[in-house]
Amino acid sequence: MNIFRFAGDMTHLCSIVVLLLKIEATKSCAGVSLRTQELYAVVFVSRYLDLFFTFISVYNTVMKVFFITSSFCIIWYMRHHRIVSQTYDREQDTFRVAFLVVPCIFLALLVNHEFSMVEVLWTFSIYLESVAILPQLILLQRTFNVDTLTSNYVFLLGAYRALYILNWLYRYFTEPGYSQWIVWSSGTLQTAIYCDFFYYYVVSWRKNERLSLPS
């Protein structure tokens, strides 16, 4: 494993820890999209089915189990925790997830490496992950003045994607025969969505700064 891949995994892990700590410490999930969290749970469950039949390494297994349990933990907080669930922005978090899930199902059935249950589910999870952040980004744009921890979460997720691109480049040049088109194209789309968001984020941040200047 190269340094980019490891740093990417660690930023991904940190993003989830930051989100959980924010929810636990502030007893609030304001600005967090439950729809995105549910999509991530679907992504992790459909991708990590291989936990049952392939063993890659202890690291790999531990990380997969962490991603699955932490995503369900966040969903539990947002849906069932007595105090946290009341802070959920239900009226603002209205993105229609079917618009993301249905096209991903069709695409996974059409474009995959092998037409088998496990392989199609794996491909579906790759496609869905690339767009799963959209409800969160839209919510963040609607409720712009949320605490910085929510933006830190989104920022760390973006950093994880950027590091994974460096990891793919590194592996492409160092490992003969290393190639995975489905992962590369979805990952690039995912990073592009983040870049678009960061552009908007910086622009409105600067606008807010200018507005708050004393006259």
């Binding site: 891949r5 088998s116 592996r171 025969g177």
Partner: peptide, 10 residues
């Protein structure tokens, strides 16, 4: 085929 794919990433 699927078994040629690198699936050690998360």
């Amino acid at each position: 085929a699927a078994d040629e794919l690198v699936k050690d990433e998360l």
